[in-house]
Amino acid sequence: MQRYILRRLAQLIPSLLLITFLVFALMHAIPGDPARMMLGAGEQLDAKQLEIVRREYNLDRPLPVQYVLWLAKAASGDLGRSTTSQRRVGEEVAMRAGITFQLGLFAWLIGICIAIPAGIVSAVHRGRWPDMLATMGAVGAVALPGFWLGIMMILLFGVTLGWLPTRGYVPLAVDPLESLRHMLLPAIALGITSSALVTRQMRSALLEVLAQDYIRTARAKGLARWAIVIGHALRNAMLPVITVMGLEIGRIFAGSVVIETLFGIPGMGRLMVQAVFTRDFPVVQGCVLVMATAVLVINFATDILYAVLDPRIRYDK
């Protein structure tokens, strides 16, 4: 197991290199000169300033050299400075990443809290009204765009009823209750879509397990239905669900781009979109590095969880 963990950890490095290089190359494929973007589209343009910017950000070097220079600095913890705000990328990304992770985690938990019970009820009552209701809910949740749901919730809970704030962010350390109140609507808007897929996955996995012989044996022993589901079936049914839950993290990150903008949350999604528009390479690279690392680490954790949940899985053999 230890060897497996070390091997998987080592595999993260080439994945990260590949991802950051691809993003670096793609950013250069986007039209627009970054030095000109930095100095403003035109009126402020000045040849001397342009030259200084090109030199300062290594934009006058060949692309592979630029990448290697970025990588060397990044390896020592220096992600450079933003070409638009000239702020340190490391500081900026660290501040934003914490907020996005908080939102993402909250959304993910909301998704799971809805999906796991809904999936179980749906499987246990297959073909009956609770199943129909859960299925309809799941289909609806997939079909609803998160931003539309967000706007509707803002109008209902924020403007009409005045129960929850419509926008903004309060740090958890400053006021935990207010922080959660601010996060609730965006987290629901973000988490509800991912709950749908997990619900469906939970339902089908549980149905498959419930049809197995050992469940029939348990039933024959006279165990209560819920004891069988929770105690015997659920653990085995969770394996594919965990895979989907892990993958959903990536989707939540992607969705946060829109939701953060809608709810005025100063997270990484918003930062990255803005950076792409203004061709702010160092910021895009910094965000991608953090997001890619997060997704890879979560996938890695998912794999480890497999072995914990199912002792038959032994990677080091």
Binding site: G158, G162, P165, T166, R167, T261, L262, G264, P266, R270
Partner: peptide, 18 residues
């Protein structure tokens, strides 16, 4: 001075008294 990129959200926030 709050940064609120979406005008719809600005309007909602004004109506909500925020």
């Amino acid at each position: 001075m709050n940064t609120v990129p979406d005008p719809t959200v600005q309007v909602s926030a004004l109506k909500a008294g925020e």
